[in-house]
């Protein structure tokens, strides 16, 4: 186990707040990409043995989360002429406070979950719960489809973080399957956003606003 694991997990939490606090789509994409890369590195070093299969899987994950998905989203942004500023239902201050509340509760009460003793001491569990919460906040308080997808990615990062604890019990192949599903989802979303933008230029990618009408 990494001696400074908790300090690295803290960075994941900080990136959650960056994603909640910034107002530019590109900045959120960068923070989610950085979070993906960080989680990949954590997966690589959380256990002492470095099996070649794990290295390959983690490498695949880092490339997907850190490079492929962000590039795809930025490409979709360019193609669909998505405005650079997000249009949140809840402002940055409210989002940050909501995120802080969820994170504080996760930090305070995560140890009450029925976990193994050595896992109760780690920050991984509260950080994963906080990350899932952050993803949910982004998903529900942002109106543009592309930012909602980013919220979905943050949510998945939280699930992945929790999965790190079960790394020895759960094959990485299962996790990579989930990741592939996610990639397909983002890919399909990119195409949909592109088509909406092409067919109805005035409508833009504001999916929730369209469905609400």
């Amino acid at each position: 186990m990494l001696p400074y694991l908790d300090s690295l997990v803290i960075l994941v939490l900080v990136l959650n707040f960056v994603a909640l606090g910034v107002t530019r789509v590109r900045a959120i994409v960068s923070s989610v990409a950085a979070q993906g890369v960080l989680l990949g590195l954590l997966a690589l070093f959380i256990h002492a043995d470095l099996a070649p299969r794990r290295v390959i899987m983690v490498g695949f994950m880092v490339v997907l989360k850190g490079i492929a998905i962000p590039r795809l989203l930025l490409h979709a942004m360019r193609e669909a002429n998505i405005v650079a500023e997000i249009r949140p239902v809840l402002g940055s201050m409210g989002s940050l406070l909501l995120g802080a509340l969820g994170t504080a509760l996760a930090l305070l009460f995560a140890h009450t979950l029925p976990l193994a003793d050595e896992q109760k001491r780690l920050l991984v569990v509260p950080a994963s719960l906080a990350t899932v919460w952050t993803g949910l906040v982004i998903l529900t308080t942002r109106t543009t489809a592309i930012v909602q997808v980013l919220g979905y990615l943050v949510l998945e990062n939280g699930v992945f973080l929790f999965g790190l604890l079960l790394l020895s019990a759960m094959p990485l192949l299962v996790e990579s399957g989930v990741l592939l599903d996610l990639f397909t989802g983002v890919f399909v979303m990119g195409i949909i956003v592109h088509h909406i933008s092409r067919e109805a230029p005035g409508a833009g990618p504001d999916v929730s606003a369209r469905t609400a009408e």
Binding site: V14, F17, L96, L97
Partner: peptide, 12 residues
Amino acid sequence: VLLLSACMLSGF
């Protein structure tokens, strides 16, 4: 917002 983030970081 950024100053509030600083408060939150120390608070955590």
